[in-house]
């Protein structure tokens, strides 16, 4: 019968009803604006705002309360300006997170796409290796590596990127497997398009959204882990500021000046929350039609 076809009618699969479109737009705009603000404040703020140096503070100006002259958020026990440390700390957190996710996305994305597209032995080998990496207690080994290589920004980036590869690879592989049998992919192959060209021109643009969405959620995760490393003294080495080592430093005087822990915690929380909200919104958009 040409006219009619059997399909579930309107009732099934309506999914969660979304509220009006401007509310939906807010889901993207609010976390996006917060992130822009955070990134702008951390990277541009120290250049244009009158904030003092984050290190080498005067010990005579230690532990000033918030709203002191010249120190909006006060100073820490070493007399360093807290606001300046927050902004510079955010700079290194964000730099690390962006670098780690870019490396992970490129390496993992390529590996997963190759694995899913090629299939066969290559696929099995790559997947088994990734299984090992996934089973690995990554934070634990990162700690060991970071300690022995000496804590530094580059080492932290490399160690974290190494362990973020499997997650990206899995997502990329799953997306590739779904796409592989799609008519346009088959058509591209039948037209004699070379393998790498199919990967680059047809596959990459289609799996990118999913990888970027995961990258957003990954930003939050990496910022938290980097904070953990610094907190344990294995990330950014003091006196250079980072949110993690500021929290660790504040912990020492938790009962006397709890506010020193609060500032970096708030900065960390807001940034991670914004990344998570943005990632969740993107994910909901991509999965729900």
């Amino acid at each position: 019968m040409a006219v009619v076809e059997a399909a579930p009618t309107l009732v099934s699969g309506t999914g969660e009803e979304r509220s009006r479109s401007w509310l939906r737009a807010l889901e993207l705009i609010v976390p996006g604006a917060v992130l822009l603000l955070v990134v702008g404040a951390c990277f541009v703020g120290p250049l244009v705002l009158p904030v003092p140096s984050p290190v080498g503070g005067n010990i005579l100006e230690s532990n000033l309360p918030a709203f002191s002259a010249g120190h909006l958020l006060g100073t820490d026990p070493n007399g360093n300006d807290v606001l300046a440390r927050i902004l510079h700390g955010g700079q290194s957190s964000l730099t690390i997170a962006i670098a780690v996710n870019l490396l992970g996305l490129l390496a993992g994305g390529t590996l997963g796409a190759l694995s899913g597209y090629a299939g066969g032995v290559l696929d099995s080998v790559i997947m088994r290796v990734l299984d090992v990496l996934i089973a690995f207690p990554s934070l634990v080994l990162t700690l060991a590596v970071a300690q022995s290589l000496g804590p530094s920004q580059t080492n932290t980036i490399l160690a974290l990127a190494f362990f973020s590869v499997p997650a990206f690879a899995r997502i990329s592989r799953a997306a590739t497997l779904r796409l592989r049998e799609q008519p346009f992919m088959v058509a591209a192959r039948l037209c004699g398009t070379r393998g790498w060209r199919v990967l680059l021109r047809h596959l990459a643009p289609n799996i990118m959204p999913q990888l970027i969405t995961f990258g957003m959620l990954g930003m939050g995760i990496i910022i938290v882990i980097e904070g953990a490393l610094s907190f344990l003294g294995l990330g950014i080495p003091p006196p250079a500021p980072s949110w993690g080592n500021m929290i660790a430093q504040g912990q020492a005087s938790l009962s006397a000046t709890p506010i020193l822990v609060v500032w970096p915690c708030v900065a960390l929380f807001i940034t991670v929350l914004a990344f998570n909200l943005l990632g969740e919104t993107l994910r909901a958009r991509w999965s729900g039609r």
Binding site: V4, E5, A6, T9
Partner: peptide, 10 residues
């Protein structure tokens, strides 16, 4: 009887 979307199931 009707095509899909004709409202019969609903």
């Amino acid at each position: 009887i009707g095509e899909s979307g004709s409202g019969k199931s609903v």
